Amino acid sequence: MRLIGSLTSPYVRKVRIVLAEKKLDYKLELEDVWAQPQDQATSPLGKVPCLVLEGGEVLQDSRVIVEYVDTLSPVGRLIPEKGRERAVVRTWEALSDGLLDAAILARLEATWPGRNDGQRSQAWIDRQLGKVRASVQTMSTSLGEQAWCCGLYLSLADIAAGCALQYLDFRFPEIDWRSRHPNLARLSDKLALRPSFQATEPPRA
């Protein structure tokens, strides 16, 4: 399998962590979606990640990819097969990805070189960051004092939440989510000790 993506994308990181936790081999092909035109055969939307399977089929979107990857190995099942537990895990993933969507929109509005300062909308940035803060609050309330987001073991919920929270550390250090939500900080710090998270930490340079 070939995974097309970047080292700084939190969505790509989520897929890489799932592949590592499932102990599956793949080849990472780096692609900067902003610096070069995309191969429309593999990425018609100009987004990463894309997973190219051995037969040439291409899977789009991190949520689709991780669901497929979880079926490839019985090692450490990350998504429950059915029922309420599955819905809860996927809801955590949707909330975490939604947080990332809002954070990335805010960052693009603030930093995209295609606009000058007079063209940027602070109201839009504030609206997106409001979604980020509301999502973090919901995650904190849902986690409570549990060791993991869902049940007694690591699941995709924890991986998705960890990628989202650590993206805030990476790109939005001014957001003081850790002191306000120490339960999420403990979860994030615990995840950061796992080899899969350590191997996929984005470069700081």
Rank of each mutant, 00 (worst) to 15 (best):
I4L: 11
Y11N: 12
Y11R: 09
K14A: 13
K14F: 02
R16N: 03
R16G: 03
I17A: 00
I17E: 00
I17W: 00
E21Y: 11
Y26W: 09
L28S: 07
L28Y: 04
E29K: 14
E29L: 15
E29A: 14
D32G: 02
V33T: 15
V33R: 14
Q36I: 04
S43R: 13
L45D: 08
V48S: 05
C50S: 14
L51C: 08
V52M: 10
G55D: 15
G55T: 00
G55V: 04
G55K: 01
G56R: 02
G56S: 08
V58Y: 10
Q60K: 08
Q60V: 02
D61A: 04
D61C: 03
S62Y: 02
R63V: 07
V64K: 05
I65A: 09
Y68P: 06
D70R: 03
D70Y: 00
T71G: 01
L72Q: 11
S73K: 05
L78N: 09
P80I: 10
R84Q: 11
E85K: 10
R86C: 03
A87T: 05
A87S: 11
A87H: 09
V89H: 05
T91Y: 07
E93I: 01
A94M: 13
L95Q: 13
G98T: 10
A102H: 07
L105C: 12
L105V: 04
R107A: 11
R107Q: 11
L108K: 11
E109M: 05
E109L: 03
W112K: 04
W112A: 11
P113H: 02
R115L: 12
G118V: 05
G118T: 05
Q119H: 00
Q122T: 03
Q122Y: 00
W124G: 00
I125T: 14
D126A: 11
L129I: 15
L129C: 08
G130K: 01
G130W: 01
K131N: 12
R133V: 12
S135D: 12
V136K: 09
V136D: 05
Q137T: 14
T138Y: 11
T138W: 13
T138K: 14
S142R: 14
G144K: 04
G144A: 04
E145R: 13
Q146W: 01
Q146R: 15
C150S: 12
G151T: 13
L152P: 00
Y153R: 14
L156Y: 10
A157L: 13
D158G: 08
C163V: 10
A164V: 03
D169V: 07
F170E: 10
F170C: 09
R171S: 13
E174F: 06
E174D: 13
I175H: 04
I175Y: 08
W177E: 10
W177A: 05
S179M: 14
S179I: 15
R180L: 12
R180K: 15
H181Q: 15
H181T: 09
P182N: 10
P182S: 09
A185H: 12
R186Q: 13
L187S: 05
S188P: 08
A192W: 06
L193R: 15
R194S: 05
P195S: 02
F197Q: 01
Q198A: 12
T200E: 01
E201A: 13
P203R: 05
P203K: 06
R204D: 00
